[in-house]
Design a protein around this nucleic acid. Structure first.
Lengths: 225, 225
DNA sequence: GGACACTCTAATGTCAACATTCGGACATTG
DNA sequence: CAATGTCCGAATGTTGACATTAGAGTGTCC
């Protein structure tokens, strides 16, 4: 799963990771594929015995996932997979809009040719995506690349705190108008790349806003807007 | 220290907290008051013996502070207090500007009279602040209240991820034009409250932008802009 | 019959010991 | 003398046991 931040082709320095990261990846994937539906209680002991690691790394992983907004927890009350209400979706969308506004402006201004090529490559892969899950992953990867092109570390970190929630929302809505999603999204992203390549801030911002608005309306229940 | 999210008057139900939170508060305070200057290596064993707790809570606290951007760490390489470069300050300022833009719009639209009273109270306290440290704390508390008035949970969380860095930057710059800071900041915040009370989005946004710009210029070295 | 207090259990919070890994000092070799 | 390889110490990563607490269930009293 494209959860790490590799630029999708750059060979990362293959740095060592701890068990906590692997546990986090496992649990995150399990949440996305529906193994742990929203509302599920995640008990440290269960996970630790299921994954055959001690509770330490599990605890760390859960804290990490809570930072990504996938879990909510309280004192002595464990962790629960979030259930995204309508208000939650609105919050995510407005915050995402704000962050992406800055990201697009930065990307238009500072994206290298290599960055743009990466974006084009991801957009191109979308046209060959075979199922909706893969398309969602590519959608997220595309926006990752936009933020990366902005070269703004803290902005990327802020994106990371809602990225998984966006992902969760998208996959949880798979099934409502899949064909529409499959049909329109690849083309939209290709247009986004072109707008960035043209270095036209206003046009790019408008396209990105339309893209978010369209996705929100389609996925929020209103069919083929 | 007003590090928790209490609305500055509401006596929280004093709910049970873990050792990790207390450790985090201690270390955060120590960073702010200069006990741990930027670049300091924070070793888990040292902290655990100094604070007389085991490494578990210390580890958790350090992870939390890393999430606030006060520390940086790597695999098997411990945690180091951040040193804010010029680029870092620019990043913090731009991200803060973006987040605050949304926060102010929300606050103008949705702030209750009680929220506004809280803001006015904090702004009023600034006039009686006796030292710069207290003024900085009140400055942060004021912006906390603005975000709180927006009623946008994830936006508040995003603010939390840079809040401590803003705090760190402000206290690290105490000494350069303290008198200017002390003289102008209380009045500026009173104006900000009035703008919010007037429910005028454009005016409020402009004042908040000016406020940030002024603070940045003063604290970045250029005196009395 | 309903409300309160108690107990009991299962989960989280904490701890101290063990295993692994990074960085540097030292010796070795071309 | 520089580059490389090895060893060692100290810090982090991991583990399992112990302490504490929230919440459910039960029993009693009014």
């Amino acid at each position: 799963m494209a959860t790490d931040n590799r630029p999708l082709g750059g060979v990362g320095p293959a740095r060592r990771r701890g068990l906590a990261d692997e546990v986090a990846d496992s649990v995150r994937a399990a949440i996305f594929d529906g193994t742990y539906p929203p509302g599920t209680q995640l008990r440290e002991t269960e996970l630790s015995s299921a994954l055959e690691v001690s509770r330490g790394p599990v605890r760390e992983a859960l804290m990490c996932l809570e930072g990504e907004g996938l879990l909510r927890s309280g004192w002595h009350r464990g962790a629960v997979v979030v259930e995204l209400s309508g208000e939650d979706v609105a919050e995510i969308d407005s915050l995402r809009g704000t962050l992406e506004h800055l990201a697009v402006r930065l990307a238009v201004e500072r994206a290298s040719e290599e960055d743009l090529d990466t974006l084009a490559r991801v957009a191109d892969r979308m046209r060959r995506a075979e199922d909706a899950h893969e398309l969602v992953a590519l959608d997220i990867a595309f926006h990752d690349a936009v933020y990366a092109a902005g070269g703004h570390r803290r902005l990327q970190e802020a994106w990371h705190t809602i990225r998984s929630q966006v992902h969760l929302f998208l996959v949880s809505r798979i099934g409502v108008s899949v064909e529409d999603y499959l049909a329109t999204v690849p083309g939209e992203h290709r247009d986004l790349v072109e707008a960035l390549r043209a270095r036209d801030p206003e046009a790019a911002l408008r396209l990105f806003a339309d893209h978010r608005s369209h996705a929100l309306h389609v996925l929020t229940g209103r069919d083929r807007a």
